[in-house]
Design a protein around this nucleic acid. Sequence first.
DNA 1: TAAAACCATAATGGATACATTTTTATGATA
DNA 2: TATCATAAAAATGTATCCATTATGGTTTTA
Lengths: 223, 223
Amino acid sequence: MSENNKQKAVLSVTEDIRAKILDGTYPEGMALSQVDIASTYQVSRTPVREALQILAGEELVEIRDTGRATVTTISPESFLEKCELRALIEMKLLELAIPLMGAEDIKKAREINESLKKCAPEEWMPLNYLFHEILYNPANRPLMQNVIKDLHHRHYARLKSFILSHRNTPRSLREHDELIDRCERQDIEGACYALESHIMMSAYALAEQLKSQQLKRRQTSSL
Amino acid sequence: MSENNKQKAVLSVTEDIRAKILDGTYPEGMALSQVDIASTYQVSRTPVREALQILAGEELVEIRDTGRATVTTISPESFLEKCELRALIEMKLLELAIPLMGAEDIKKAREINESLKKCAPEEWMPLNYLFHEILYNPANRPLMQNVIKDLHHRHYARLKSFILSHRNTPRSLREHDELIDRCERQDIEGACYALESHIMMSAYALAEQLKSQQLKRRQTSSL
DNA sequence: TAAAACCATAATGGATACATTTTTATGATA
DNA sequence: TATCATAAAAATGTATCCATTATGGTTTTA
């Protein structure tokens, strides 16, 4: 039997809007009109409204009490706090994982790290997530890993262009290498420290870029 | 002008179903039929469907790919991991908060702790959350506190009956007192340790109760 | 000129109708 | 009796319709 591509409208609409928000096609603050979306996807407003509720639950969309939906904005402060949370949880995962890591885990991490150095820009974000995921898998904490996955895919992903622009700095590459080495040496404290600075260093840089972009946008929009 | 009680159907339906799931009126695994809910609240299925999407985003409801919605079940494992996550974040919040606490914060915490000892059962959960909230407020981490609030209100609350049954054991009361004392003495490490064991002790006990209840339910349902 | 009032337009909230899918019940067959 | 096929019933998915509310612009008025 041939493949069944027929998907529920709610799902495909949700996925597509989500992707467009994440890649910036629908920028911060943009109004998401039910009728526009419905005509865009050639569906009725019913599935569109459900899609917007789903995306609101993911904090990608805000539904005001007037009913109007807009793309949420990312404040530099809340972004920094998300990174702090990310660091906190990832350190815990690493702490739990290191004693349970095998040689093949280390090897796999090194392989992915090598691919990271020469991959295409579009592949960088998922590969980078995979790198972290592999390090944390031995911890066996599915819920915590899900929280991390969400932070990566739903929030970090919105800063893609910034992230890609300084993904392969010498520092960034050195940090990954160092992290693996410390895991191999079972240096839990050192590895956690390396991870925390890896995350927070880029966090501060990204928050700065975010701030200046939002400032710039506010100035141009007031012309 | 008199009060405007007219609320959107989606909101009131969402709130009511959420409350019923949290207090056990709609137990684990219960099927939530759109038509039944619609007729219960005398509304059409349109707002009901949006409400179910919202609740699915809160992990209180699961929508299978057949479209059927059911109340999610709480596995003892995932509950334990949620507690672990809660402990991790609350320890961080406490660590950040202690150096910034004033005398009035300590005083307030003590007051609430006293109310906790003699409050009515319905008031215990919100008061207990308030106790923790006050300790973490000085940390100034709104996002982390929101995560904690969610864990308390959306997941912990479902174990209300269990929690209430051993809320005021001598150990539990002593733990709160000890926590406040250590905060007052600026003993960050000690306070965090006290907090972690406070959370995890009850976590293990609750997980056990959960396990035996689910076992019992499975046996009775197979009669 | 500025602000308030008003109206026309557009958008959302909810109800209903119909199409499609899933579930349940029934009955035939081995 | 068990199993499979099938048909009826029920539930969900989507479209469309109408009522209500919000929005934007215009006119009126102080």
